[in-house]
Design a protein around this nucleic acid. Structure first.
Length: 848
RNA sequence: GCGAAAGUGGCGGAAUUGGCAGACGCGCCAGACUUAGGAUCUGGUACCGAAAGGUGUGGGGGUUCGAGUCCCCCCUUUCGCACCA
């Protein structure tokens, strides 16, 4: 230990020591209880940003805490290394995506090590390496076998001039990003995973995690899954034996249906119009709707529609109503068609007004007369009525034949039942969640292990042929086509079934596939026979704490839940949910120069801060301490240069104090003196020490890291106020200081591990790593106050305080309060109506 | 538009069970040490007031002996969803 604190030297020293002593490597056969602390793995863009630093600082604080508490802590890291930026770099800069990616990983690994995050680096994984994506392919085959992976036609953005697929970004504004041609929607054969099969479970199992996940994430997942309970009804078609099916959550309004509105691309409509004069018009209309949708802005589009001339028959009343097509009905939700009830649905109302469709009220508000035989209604006629807007609430049915007079709640069940018994409908549940399309016409991803054979058709690659290796390189000139299609030695293969010459699928998988199961691979990262052995994940998973940004609240966190359920189904696992506790940390923001706006750090806004510069200027410890202190973990964090200076100032003060006491503490007798040997001040210091241990231990369980740091500062302030000179301190005083300082240094380790190690060594623990030390234990007896200071209020206003013993009774407190001089003065001449005593906390005297 | 969450000093925030509002830090002010200070140390710092004292947690109302905390209305901000039948 040097007299002065030099972060750079200290940090280098301990990073080396940790590596040499393999301090953070964990093994499966360790008798201690396990703890799996996981942070979302980064995309190797080339540089760590402050969001990463915050994410990993939070995780590392928890990992340190748990380790000091005696847990066997798995704390791994890896790279989400497939994805577009690498391919863009290849297209633009002519570099190989693999080289680009490896270089970035190399650099970012160095940054993480300079931050001193306590990872088990022996378990590092990277998605772009064949020993990882082989298992993506393995899972794909398993899903294919079970019908979870399937192929279907699906619309993509298509540039008709270049005859190529474009991503959403490449077709923004509805035109091709290169040639400016208007983009079309075109159907392409693509692979999908049946997430919808698991919709019910994804919803149901939220019960298992709702105490550990933020409510807002669960809510977004619930909305994403979008379970909706209602009924389906088949409307007959006039002069045809076909039926058109609709889904509704409001079957009670069916007597108010004045049209059927179908999605423009509804196949039944096209079929029914076969040969009709309207056939082309409707096809034209469908094309326009598809185009508008591709160009969709944030704004809701104006509703447009057209009458198809087809008539449908309402099975409840036999009425014929027109069938329309419109842009506001979506083919891929519900049944792709709705019954239009303008009086009781806002969208239908708007549509009906525009096209002068009849508006018929069939639900009346329930009034105070609801118990009378004749329900009150706003309009007692079955003709089109004037309504200022749709009435969408539940109410009482009117103009609804035999259901008239019933409440919506009752009619919903009865009418669904009626439809079912008469064979034209029944109960139905629909979901908003769609199957997950994973085909990407891109190079830098895991190849889809499917072969197209002229004899056998679509054939899965054989397991023993995995991995299907991604070629070294391809033509990246950016034709928009999957670059793999141009690599002959990749495309041309033999059929795994009949050995005939065959062609490979040239698409790669969505990168969300890689991140759906990566943290299971950490448990068994070098397994060559399986993605992981069930025994290792049985030991380590589920993840105890997962930490990351809330931009992944739906996609990644739904997909990984889905993947877990699939892995359970193929008996790799035996639980439903992969993550017990989830923390979504807040963003790191900085002032945008020339404005007073705080925005997320970004290159384009020029308000980014380079972690390396921070480390150079202040040290990793100060940067990490500041980040964790400045705001609660889930809040936005506003960057502040002076804040980080405060952090290094604090570390330096603690460091200086350790330096001043080091000789005295190294030589001090460890034996605790008898209680009566401690002075009043020494007892107060010990009380603060034990109170602090208790508070911080509790805070860590809730990840209240900012208040933990504040408590450490308070303890330090108490130590500073304990003005005893090291050389003249009594044995008891030195003991109290040692107890406080050791607790302080150990509990500082999760926030500033390098400096803490250095101080720990300086305090005489040569050769013993702080990283294998033990978290201090709070002694409740020592933490207990020796006397209480009880506030005394008069009519709820603080007037005085009285000193009392911790065992004081209510009566004693009351007496003490009433006899207090200041209190007597303020209640003089008034009648005491009541005295409220909150045991050992407060007295309130009510006077008149 | 719909839904949710949140509004506390100059700033980040604390008060986690209805019981002393403003812990801790930043900033600022004063002082010490210094050739010097954007270093370090000491003290102060919600507001009004000379003081006694009074006021104070977005605004208004309510419940309670007692409200930052619970209830109702309003305002503002942030986030999410946005044709989901």
């Amino acid at each position: 230990m040097d007299e002065k604190y030099f972060p750079e030297a200290v940090e280098k020293k301990w990073q080396r020591r940790w590596e040499e002593s393999r301090a953070f490597e964990v093994s499966d056969d360790d008798p201690r209880p396990k703890f799996y602390c996981l942070e979302m793995l980064p995309y190797p863009s080339g540089f760590l940003h402050m969001g990463h630093v915050r994410n990993y600082s939070i995780g590392d604080a928890l990992a340190w805490y748990k380790r000091l508490q005696g847990f066997n802590v798995l704390h791994p890291i890896g790279w989400d290394s497939f994805g577009q930026p690498a391919e863009q770099a290849a297209i633009k800069g002519g570099v190989n995506p693999r080289d680009w990616t490896e270089r970035n990983i190399e650099h970012m690994r160095g940054q993480l090590k300079r931050l001193g995050i306590s990872y088990d680096w022996t378990r590092e994984i990277a998605a772009h390496r064949a020993d990882y994506y082989k298992w993506d392919q393995w899972f794909f085959l398993k899903m294919f076998e079970r019908g979870i992976a399937y192929k279907k036609l699906s619309p993509v953005n298509w540039c008709p001039k270049e005859e190529t697929v474009l991503s959403n970004e490449q077709s923004s504004g509805g035109v091709c990003w290169r040639c400016g041609t208007r983009v079309e929607k075109r159907d392409l054969e693509q692979w999908f995973l049946r997430t919808t099969n698991y919709a019910e479970q994804l919803l149901e199992h939220m019960k298992e995690i709702d105490s550990g996940w933020p409510e807002k994430v669960l809510k977004r997942q619930r909305d994403w899954i979008g379970r909706s309970v209602g009924a389906y009804i088949d409307f007959g078609i006039k002069a045809s034996d076909k039926k058109v099916r609709v889904f509704t959550t409001r079957i009670d309004t069916i007597f108010g249906a004045t049209a059927i509105v179908a999605a423009a691309e509804h196949p039944l409509i096209a079929e029914l119009l076969q040969g009709s004069s309207l056939q082309d018009d409707v096809a034209q209309f469908a094309k326009k709707v598809a185009l508008d949708r591709a160009n969709a802005s944030d704004e809701e589009e104006e509703k447009i529609g057209m009458n198809t001339g087809i008539l449908a028959i309402n099975p409840f009343n036999g009425e014929s109503i027109p069938v329309w097509v419109a842009n506001y009905v979506l083919m891929d939700y519900g049944a792709g068609a709705v019954m239009s009830v303008p009086a009781h649905d806002e969208r239908d109302f708007e549509f009906a007004q525009k096209y002068s469709l009849p508006i018929r009220q069939v639900i009346a508000p329930v009034t105070h007369r609801q118990n009378s035989a004749e329900p009150h209604s706003l309009a007692g006629t079955d003709q089109s009525v004037d309504m200022p807007h749709a009435f969408v609430d539940y109410g009482v049915l009117i103009n609804s034949g035999e259901w008239g007079g019933k409440l919506s709640e009752v009619a919903l069940a009865e009418m669904t039942n009626f439809a079912e018994t008469h064979g034209f409908g029944g109960p139905a549940v629909t979901y908003r969640i769609r199957d997950w399309g994973i085909s990407r016409q891109r190079f830098w991803g895991a190849p889809i292990p499917i072969v197209y054979c002229p004899n056998c058709g679509t054939v899965p690659e054989a397991y023993e042929n995995l991995p299907v290796n991604l070629p070294e390189s391809a033509d990246f000139s950016g034709t928009g086509q999957s670059p793999l299609a141009s690599v002959a030695e990749f495309v041309n293969t033999t059929c795994p079934k009949c050995q005939a010459p065959a062609r490979r699928d040239t698409d790669t998988m969505d990168t969300f596939v890689d991140s759906s199961w990566y943290f299971f691979r950490y448990c068994d990262p070098r397994n060559e026979a399986l993605p992981f052995s069930p025994s290792t994940t049985k030991l380590w998973t589920p993840v105890d704490q997962y930490i990351g940004g809330d931009e992944h609240a739906v996609m990644h966190l739904i997909y990984t839940r889905f993947w877990t359920k699939f892995m359970r189904d193929i008996e790799l696992l035996s639980f439903d949910e992969p993550v017990k506790r989830l923390l979504t940390q807040g963003m790191v923001t900085n002032l945008v120069e020339g404005t007073d706006e705080w925005k997320a750090m970004s290159k384009s806004l020029g308000n980014g801060v380079d972690p390396d510069e921070m480390i150079r200027a202040f040290g990793a410890d100060a940067a990490r301490l500041f980040i964790l202190f400045a705001a609660p973990v889930e809040n936005e964090l506003r960057w502040s240069e002076s804040g980080i200076e405060g952090a290094i100032r604090f570390i330096r003060r603690v460091y200086t104090m350790v330096w001043q006491w080091r000789e005295r503490l190294a030589g001090a007798d460890i034996e605790a003196p008898a209680l009566e040997e401690f002075s009043l001040e020494a007892r107060a210091l010990r009380r603060k020490t034990h109170q602090t241990i208790s508070k911080i231990t509790n805070d860590f369980e809730h990840l209240y890291l900012n208040t933990s740091v504040a408590a450490l500062m308070e303890l330090f302030n108490s130590l500073s106020d304990f003005r005893v000179d090291p050389s003249s301190a009594s044995h008891a005083e030195a003991f109290a200081v040692r107890e406080a300082l050791e607790a302080l240094v150990i509990m500082l380790a999760p926030f500033a591990p390098h400096a803490s190690e250095e101080m720990w060594e300086g305090m005489g623990h040569e050769g013993g790593l702080l990283s294998s030390a033990k978290w201090p234990q709070a002694d409740p007896d020592l933490a207990r106050k020796e006397e209480l200071e009880i506030p005394v209020q008069v009519n709820g206003k603080l007037r005085s305080r009285v000193i009392a013993s911790p065992e004081v009774s209510d009566d004693e407190l009351r007496a003490a309060a009433l006899s207090d001089e200041k209190i007597q003065a303020s209640i003089e001449g008034r009648e005491v109506a009541k005295v409220i005593v909150v045991p050992k906390r407060l007295v309130n005297i009510v006077v008149r």
